[in-house]
Simulated scan of single mutants.
Amino acid sequence: MEGVKSTSVSANFADKYHCTGEKLGSGGFGTVYSGVRKSDQLQVAIKVVDKNKVTDWYRPKVTPIPLEIALLQRVSHIKGVNQLMDYYEQSRCFIMVLQKPEGCMDLFDYISEKKVLSEKTARAFFRQILETVHEVHKAGVVHRDIKDENLLVNTKTGQLQLIDFGSGAFLIDSAYTDFDGTRVYSPPEWIRQHRYHARPAAVWSLGILLYDMVCGDIPFELDEQICKAELTFKGHLSKEVQSLISGCLQIKPSNRLSIEDIFQHPWLRNNEKSSLSSVENIACIIPLKTANTNSSGSLESKVSTSSEGSY
């Protein structure tokens, strides 16, 4: 297994890091706190996971570790993934030390503040997300909870990072029969049959996410709506972006676009430059928020889907 090396039970986390006590998020898989690396005062995120709450383990030749740690090690080389810097096993828990990029907020909060994203901004963001998901799959991992709350936006550079692999798995070609992700982002085949394949399910989630960006909220709330997949587009959207979203949100998995198809879609290959420099007013949009703010004061009717804190 590549990436961060295992840290023994006897290793003293407190010698290297200071936990400030500020909670960034919490949920079924653990609690995330703000922290500092003592050697250089680098800001970090510290995720604490109780051993008795770990349901999926990776069992190498040495001591078993939570599957989430093994997945993060596997994707450690990918630029668009929030990196695991270190981890520690304690008697009752595992402690993960993760990057905490400065000037970031989650995409849920970003969309809530902007109400909707222009197609230019959405294109710049979506291309990054697509490239990251593609690289994660090439590394043999599937995230299984792609959504706005699991993406950090650097408000200075416009770069995005995918976070929280707590619902992830190793990529397989056969069907999955378990799912711990967010239901309103899950595909119809999971709702109906409790079975799905990784790649078409990821494309469905990407379609929900793109709709969320350009329309300001997710398209479906109820299981019946997910299974019917009847789209109503808001605002004045181009036919190209509507086509891309519709191609991702096909009821039958075999009818959906593949990730390779999405890369070649006319909307994503639009002649209009969608580099990071084109992301509109990104450095001065709003005051910085903690990446896992629970947006109870969000604009309009956009509601957080999260049951788990960021990271």
Rank of each mutant, 00 (worst) to 15 (best):
V4F: 04
V4W: 03
K5C: 10
K5T: 11
A11K: 07
D15C: 11
C19I: 14
L24M: 09
G28T: 15
F29E: 08
G35D: 05
V36I: 15
A45H: 06
V48R: 13
V49I: 15
N52S: 12
W57F: 12
Y58R: 07
V62Y: 06
T63G: 00
A70Y: 08
L71N: 08
L72I: 15
R74G: 00
G80T: 05
Y88K: 06
Q90P: 00
C93W: 00
I95D: 01
L98K: 07
P101T: 08
G103C: 09
G103R: 11
D109I: 03
I111H: 07
E113M: 07
E113T: 12
E119D: 11
F125G: 01
I129G: 03
L130A: 04
L130C: 03
G140Y: 05
R144Q: 14
L152Y: 02
N154D: 12
N154F: 02
T155F: 00
K156C: 10
K156T: 08
L160P: 02
L162M: 08
G168C: 10
A169K: 14
F170C: 02
S174R: 13
A175E: 14
Y176A: 03
Y176I: 12
V184I: 15
V184S: 13
E189K: 03
H194V: 03
R195N: 06
A198R: 07
A198Y: 05
A201I: 11
A202W: 05
V203P: 06
I208L: 12
L210H: 07
D212I: 01
M213W: 08
C215D: 03
G216R: 09
I218G: 04
P219S: 08
L222S: 15
L222M: 12
D223T: 11
E224H: 14
Q225N: 05
I226P: 00
C227W: 02
L231F: 07
H236R: 05
I245W: 00
N255D: 14
L257R: 01
L257D: 00
L257Q: 01
S258Y: 04
Q264C: 11
N270F: 07
N270T: 09
N270Q: 12
K273G: 00
S277E: 04
V279M: 06
A291S: 13
N292R: 01
N294T: 14
S298C: 06
V303K: 15
T305C: 08
S307I: 11
E308Y: 10
S310M: 10
Y311Q: 04
